[in-house]
Nucleic acid binder design. Structure first.
Length: 747
DNA sequence: AATGCCAGTGTTTTT
DNA sequence: CACTGGCATT
């Protein structure tokens, strides 16, 4: 059967995965093990061999870019266009489904998506409306709580408040959802949550989706959170032809509620899944792999793996100590030059990876000075700029006149003499009658009786009239024109000049606007409507649209580099408190283990050349800080490193001195028997048959229990199986945890 | 209502 | 250092 063209050149494990029977399948794929090939060929296999129509397949990837790539690879394999094949991120997929079905949940068709900035603004306004002090109740923190709750599928009604702060969060959460609904808007969390609610609420719709999608495939399964896991479960029932790929060692989205133990839950929730382990690495040299293994082996919460490569030893890993971040940038610059001279590596073959977005600055400045082409894969994008957000708010308000956040953003930008007082009077009236914004504006427009003073009316009415004319002229293909009208009728150009500090700044911002205009024209050319444009800009990041052949060095965080590979990789900022980040250290072992995985993800991006660097001194704001080297450096085998003798001697010593890490061993996902991997699906399946179900303690809702890591808390919910328990912790957020990690407390 | 100045504060990571 | 928010002035 290995003669089948779809299986050509693949190893037995990969073939086992691709040809697994229809039914649940779990692929544990180490880095560089060809999992993208497996996923694309699995889709092609389903279509060709199992005759699953392509429009009845749904695949979920981590970025929109990966989705696009996957689609084109499958199309190439089958040599046909597959328009109905549903591939996208969880968010874009849900957005797409909800575009059709959101009315069932009470939204009007022109609902919009709020990004995190929009959510934060709304929360801030609500905190003020409720009379809470914004210092004691930072909107950002509340926002985090609310999105954590949404990830755990906890609705405002179910939000258990045990502390005073939580009580306020609960009230803000309820008001926030109300405002979102009235504004006809969903935030990122709502996209997932609403989709799950829809599937639970409407038997008819659930059946529709379940009937349509015979097969569901999920990439990066270790980074799914509760609501995503539930979505997969709901969509893949009842036939359960669900194929998931993941690697617990690459789980890096804990902060978003992701739990790599979903890999474990999968094994319990789906009957007898096929299990395949991909350990053969096709990407990196043995040296790079050895370093990666040395790093990740320090994590206890994992299944040991035996990554191996048929590639040669390769060159040693370069380790560089820089005096500060500028010298570090210079080091990277110099090495890039040398690589370009001595190898045929292109700029786009090189990645520079760092922990925090702020670190990109030193590199950007150095690259600009040296005129080296480079591009940022992550960071504060174009759309975050004030002038762009302003214009977007105008467009969004035209599309959805109920959008409170956009309205409040532009009602007095440029200044129209509508300050706190006037807006306050208006908002109070709207709130007191619980009006939708568009209804309130209509009442003004048609001069109906309102309790507003003539002064306030007189100020707002001209804006309402403008809005009405724009709404009338908004039509397909007219986005560019619309933009021009808005700018000229609001005199936004004058506003830019007035609010800029220097001429340079005004010029810069004007340039941004014309760039934005260009994008709208482009949208017009490709036939996009206002809603296409708005959806796309919220759900797509700049990295998604980056062309493969754009010959520029990639600058990126560890998170955004995931899934990619490069002949040459620089991992920078290897200082304690940076990697691991200080906040992660404060979270304890789980936090540090996740940082370790970040490092691992970074290392395993490299094919041939790997450079590690740290800076003795870094200047976060005005001051300066002296940092120690990252604790992870002590895990590196020094004989694989190439660095100054002094540095290496220091590391050797650090390694000898380092206290053995007695981290609590958690249950590995599968107990491995110490024999070598047999080939073929059946053999592997039996190999993992030793999996033991952990013991469940007896818990009941309302009782108290103590968690290994999070401490004491109140049991607020238990899954039907009794495996998963919702806990409201005294010292932590609401979380869902595994029952076996809890000890019941009496009283 | 708009502007301007000062103090304080903060930075993980992303859809 | 930058950016925000609060406060005083115009």
């Amino acid at each position: 059967m290995s003669k089948h063209p779809l299986l050509a050149g693949l190893n037995p494990q990969q073939i086992a995965a691709i040809t697994a029977d229809l039914g649940p399948a779990l692929v544990l794929a180490g880095p560089g093990s060809g999992k993208t090939s497996v996923l694309t060929r699995r889709i092609a296999w389903l279509i060709q061999e199992h005759h699953v129509p392509h429009h009845r397949i749904m695949a979920v990837t981590f970025t929109n870019k990966a989705a696009g790539e996957m689609r084109s690879r499958v199309e190439k394999l089958l040599d046909s266009k597959l328009r109905g094949l549903q591939i996208g991120t969880f968010h874009s997929t849900c957005a797409r489904f909800l575009r059709r079905d959101a009315q069932i949940l009470g939204y009007r068709d022109n609902w919009v998506i709020y990004d995190s900035d929009d959510s934060q603004r709304l929360i801030k306004a609500i905190v003020a409306d409720l009379g809470f002090d914004s210092k004691e109740n930072p909107p950002r923190r509340i926002n985090n709580r609310i999105s954590a709750a949404k990830n755990e599928m906890i609705l405002p009604e179910g939000y258990q408040a045990l502390s005073r702060f939580d009580e306020r969060v609960a009230r803000v959460y309820a008001a926030y959802q109300h405002e979102l609904k009235i504004s006809n808007a969903m935030d990122f969390g709502d996209l997932l949550l609403n989709m799950a609610l829809l599937l639970k609420k409407s038997d008819e719709r659930r059946k529709d989706y379940q009937d349509r999608f015979l097969a569901v495939l999920v990439d990066e399964f270790q980074d799914t959170n509760t609501v995503q896991y539930q979505l997969v479960k709901l969509l893949s029932a009842p036939q359960q032809f669900v194929f998931v790929v993941g690697d617990e060692d690459q789980a890096i989205y804990r902060f978003r509620g992701a739990d790599y133990r979903n890999l474990l839950r999968f094994r319990k929730d789906y009957p007898e899944p096929a299990v395949v382990l991909l350990e053969q690495n096709y990407r990196s040299t043995q040296t790079i792999l050895d370093v990666a293994s040395a790093v990740i082996n320090n994590n206890r919460s994992r299944t040991p793996k035996n990554l191996h490569t048929s590639r040669g030893k390769g060159e040693p890993i370069a380790l560089h100590e820089a005096a500060d971040e500028q010298y570090e940038a210079d080091f990277v610059l110099e090495q890039v030059r040398q690589l370009r001279e001595s190898t045929d590596i292109a700029y786009s073959d090189i990645a520079v990876i760092y922990r925090t977005n702020a670190q990109s600055r030193a590199f950007e400045e150095a690259f600009i000075r040296a005129r080296l082409p480079h591009v940022l894969l992550s960071g504060f994008g174009f759309y975050q700029r004030r002038e762009i957000k302003d214009l977007l708010a105008y467009l969004r308000l035209i599309y959805n006149p109920d959008d409170r956040v956009s309205f409040e953003r532009v009602i007095n930008t440029p200044a129209r003499g509508i300050g706190k007082k006037s807006l306050g009077a208006f908002s109070d009236w709207v709130a007191s009658e619980d009006l939708a914004l568009s209804d309130a504006l209509d009442k003004l427009y048609f001069d109906e009786a309102t309790p507003l003073s003539t002064a306030v009316k007189g100020k707002i009415l001209p804006f309402v009239n403008l809005l009405a004319t724009w709404t009338e002229m908004a039509q397909p293909g007219g986005l560019g024109d619309l933009f021009q009208h808005i700018v000229s009728q609001t005199r936004y150009d004058l506003h830019l000049e007035k609010t800029s500090q220097h001429e340079d700044e005004a010029l810069d911002r004007a340039q941004n606007l014309s760039e934005f205009y260009g994008m709208l024209m482009k949208a017009d050319d490709s036939g996009q409507t206002l809603h296409d444009f708005l959806d796309e800009r919220t759900l797509y990041t700049s990295a998604d649209s980056l062309e493969e052949d754009d010959d520029k060095v990639r600058l990126s965080t560890f998170h955004s580099i995931k899934g990619l590979e490069f002949p040459a990789v620089f991992i920078t900022g290897l200082e304690q408190d940076n990697l691991p980040h200080r906040n992660a250290i404060a979270e304890g072992k789980e936090g540090i283990e996740e940082e370790c995985r970040l490092f691992y993800v970074g290392i395993t991006r490299a094919e041939d050349h790997l450079f590690l660097s740290y800076a003795m001194q870094r200047r976060p704001f005005g001051g300066s800080s002296i940092n120690g080297t990252s604790q992870f450096l002590a895990d590196l085998p020094t004989h694989l490193l190439d660095g100054s003798p002094l540095t290496l001697a220091y590391l050797r010593q650090a390694r000898a001195v380092a206290a053995p890490t007695h981290w609590e061993p958690r249950h590995p996902i599968f107990e491995r028997k110490p024999k070598s991997i047999a080939s073929g699906n059946q053999a592997i399946r039996s190999q993992f048959a030793t999996f033991k179900a952990p013991q469940k303690p007896t818990l009941r809702v309302g009782s108290r229990a103590s968690h290994k890591q999070f401490g004491g808390g109140l049991v607020i919910g238990i899954d039907p199986d009794g495996d998963i328990v919702s806990m409201s912790f005294d010292e932590h957020q609401l979380k869902k945890v595994f029952a076996e990690d809890l000890t019941p407390l009496d009283g």
